[in-house]
Amino acid sequence: MGEEKKKIIEMRDIVKRFYIGTPNELEVLCGIDLDVYEGEFLAIVGASGSGKSTLMNIIGSLDRATEGSYILDGIDVSKAKDEELSGIRNKKIGFVFQTYNLIAKTNAIKNVEMPLMYGGVAQKQRNQRAKELLELVGMGDRIHHLPEELSGGQKQRVAIARAMANDPAIILADEPTGALDSKTGRIVMDLFHKLHEEQGKTIVLITHSPELAEECQRIITIKDGLIVGEREGGAAV
């Protein structure tokens, strides 16, 4: 990494404790320093209970760190209020969940439009943008299908299109292939590579699978709330 790249995520000494002030007080993250650069494809791996989900929640602005500072795309998230966090999640982060989490009884295009709706984009533009995105993920012919009419792989592709809706600073994917068979999982991973290479998206992939992590540029391993390893992956430039 010769030239200076823009930092999308800058975490310093992040500590997260639960049950503060009770005898059960639990320190899940014990001081994490993490930098993610623009256009990077990063994997965070760790066994369950390692604190990787907590770290993901903090990266995704779903939760605030107990201590430490977190700057996301120039915004100090650690000091943001609830309403501001909503805005940050809406504009800066695109979530992809293991269980897809499409809104039931709402068709593909309306699902993709949802972040745009909460972002205050007018109906016409959001319809246009959602169509483009569904075509990008190869779901252009199923825009009016309901989630229950789609296969797992198709649902995940709609979810990825939804994550892209507001052109976020990072895509945060939590075990995106965890519920898929290896073939459809491959299609989904190829889609992430495509978004990374063609659109230059910054992607943070959280997984416990070493093979998937190997596909990324950089792999960070978490254990007991600390970063214990950092190495280049197979896709490293």
């Binding site: 995704g60 779903l62 609830d82 309403e83 805005g87 999640r89 809406n90 979530f95 989490n101 909460y118």
Partner: peptide, 16 residues
């Protein structure tokens, strides 16, 4: 509940 969680992750405010 999950839908509400998802909506919040997508940027829905408490008010909405």
């Amino acid at each position: 509940t999950r839908e509400i969680g998802t909506r919040k992750a997508l940027g829905a405010t408490n008010a909405s």
